[in-house]
Design a protein around this nucleic acid. Sequence first.
DNA 1: GCGTGTGAACTGGTTCACAGCG
DNA 2: CGCTGTGAACCAGTTCACACGC
Lengths: 209, 209
Amino acid sequence: MKKKLSIPTITRLCMVFQQCDELQIMGILRVSSTQLGKAIGVPAHTIRKDINCLGEVGDTGSGYDVARLKAHLRRALGFDQIRRACIVGLGRLGSALMDYEKFGASGFSVVAGFDSSVNRIETMQTRMPVYPAYDMKEVIQREAIELALLAVPAPVAQATADVLVASGIRGIVNFCPVVINVPETQVQVRNINVINEMRVLSSLMTLGE
Amino acid sequence: MKKKLSIPTITRLCMVFQQCDELQIMGILRVSSTQLGKAIGVPAHTIRKDINCLGEVGDTGSGYDVARLKAHLRRALGFDQIRRACIVGLGRLGSALMDYEKFGASGFSVVAGFDSSVNRIETMQTRMPVYPAYDMKEVIQREAIELALLAVPAPVAQATADVLVASGIRGIVNFCPVVINVPETQVQVRNINVINEMRVLSSLMTLGE
DNA sequence: GCGTGTGAACTGGTTCACAGCG
DNA sequence: CGCTGTGAACCAGTTCACACGC
């Protein structure tokens, strides 16, 4: 029974996908909603509802076949093709991301880095091509890059995002602690705001729940 | 009219708090819900509802006094005292976080770093004290550290979290792509999962909305 | 008229309960 | 008997609409 996927559902299904990967590596063939729920920290009902959105996948009475579940998720979430990505802003965070080797195993291929400071680029020892900011549009189009990890200083975040949009990028993970404005029909955005998460955490700590 | 704060509400209020800071720096004294909403990317209704949870704060008809609003938020969210934090795991991400100077201006004081690799610690040039992992409990208690940024490799995340809990930590920002289990009544957790965010983004891109 | 405060309506996601199958 | 699939019940957060004050 196919249904439209809500964002919380998508988020959880992505985690289920990850779990399937790990289960497969461990050689486990079948898994129940209870086990999945435990692994990703949500009740079993929720998992079942979520998985149901993809149509019937489980064998009633005996859980899910890991390989089959993973295949369904791959198609439903669009993980068939690997996505070409770039990192914009090579300060501490940007270069940490550049060194993060897990991208490859996750269906992403980070093929370029950009920074406005030529010095920084020159002193950077890396196997990934790095370009000055003014080449952004050209490189993104030439390399068919679909998504960007935006890790520039907050004051230039919007301007940089504008260039990304003009370059035809389709998705942005925004690490800057400001809201960026993009045409929502063309470009998807996810925000990761470390300071805000810390503040929320701090509030939860004082509120005691 | 005081009400209990939901997590989405807290998240937005933290962003409003941040906005107040910036407005103050710019010397702006008053702000409307419309302006705030635009700045943090949510409709004005929502902002008003959120702010209302703190009791009456705005002057009917003429928006909010920035200083007063900020003061209310500070008290309601518990930003009076600065929180002592530590960074656990000094790989690329951990050390990037260590260099992130914005913490100070945000009410946090990062007073220690921990890593299991002694080599890494020795070759690290930094003004922040860095300790081997086996000193974690002792240092956390001695330094009265309340929260931790957990950036260790995924396989040791749970074990490390257990030590943090045993050390009496009160909050964890978990950067590892696994769910960590902690006694929820004592310790608050917020997860930041970069790979999962990228996957969600990718799904949204294929689903075209 | 603009902007806040707030109760009422609504929407949609989560939780429950149970039928059905291995 | 355990586990999935699913319709129904529930609940929470969001959105709306309007009264009141500047």
